[in-house]
Simulated assay, not measured.
Amino acid sequence: MRLKQQLTIAFIVSVLSLIGFSFIAFTISANEYLKFDEVVIALVQGLESPLLTSIMKFFTYIGSTSALIILSLFILFFLYKVLKHRLELILFSAVIIGSPLLNFMVKLFFRRARPDLHRLIEIGGYSFPSGHAMNAFSLYSILTFLLWRHITAKWARVLLILFSMSMILSIGISRIYLGVHYPSDIIAGYLAGGFWISISIWFFQRYQDRRKNKDMQ
């Protein structure tokens, strides 16, 4: 895929993600919670069982800040030592550091209270957008983007996408199941993550293009 196409796709994804996020933000500003939230929460929490609760707590931990730091350090080491693509460390670090910072600022702006229906764990802070969902989307999407370039086998690329999608969805669903987020928080977190990572990739690709043109001169 040519660079111009990659830049165009990244720009379109960022715009669509921003539009989707803005729509949800406007909707929840007019309503404390949505009928959609009630229906999905009832459906997900209706599956409650001791085994499923343990599984969901595991995925919530995987999406926590401490686990994010550990995974990020491992990926940074892999990119630096194994793949030898040191420039990509900048992109990865910018995405991983910027995602929770952006999420924190957006949460302070909207100040949406967490659901108080049926919580299986206790947690403080604001609800919108979900930090777990946003950070998971950012982490596994940027990981997929970086590894995709080094994987040529079609089956391996399919596995990479399936793994990333399953982790993103599982972490998001775990927050609904445990009663600490509305479904609209999760979707907004995914959209915010999509906006952040697409903008980051756009700037990264632009920088690489300018650096390449400069070297050719």
Rank of each mutant, 00 (worst) to 15 (best):
S174G: 02
R111D: 12
K214Y: 15
R114P: 12
Q208V: 00
Y80A: 11
R211T: 11
N31Q: 14
G193C: 14
V13H: 03
L3I: 15
M134I: 02
S14K: 10
F36S: 09
R157I: 09
L108Y: 08
R211M: 11
I121T: 09
P115R: 00
K84C: 06
E88L: 04
F163K: 00
L68V: 10
R175H: 05
K212T: 15
G63K: 06
G98V: 03
F92A: 04
E122Q: 11
F21Y: 14
V15K: 01
H118W: 02
L16N: 04
G125Q: 11
Y182M: 05
I41F: 05
R111Y: 10
S174H: 01
P183H: 08
W196M: 09
A30Y: 13
S54P: 00
G131N: 06
N103W: 08
K84F: 04
I199V: 13
G172W: 04
L117R: 04
L79D: 02
A10P: 00
R119K: 07
L79K: 00
Y190Q: 15
I55G: 02
I187G: 06
G179P: 08
S174C: 03
Y140V: 06
R149S: 03
A136N: 08
H181K: 11
L91F: 04
Q208W: 06
S93T: 12
S17V: 03
G20Q: 09
L83E: 01
R114V: 07
R2T: 15
F92Q: 05
I186R: 07
F109Q: 10
T65S: 10
L7C: 11
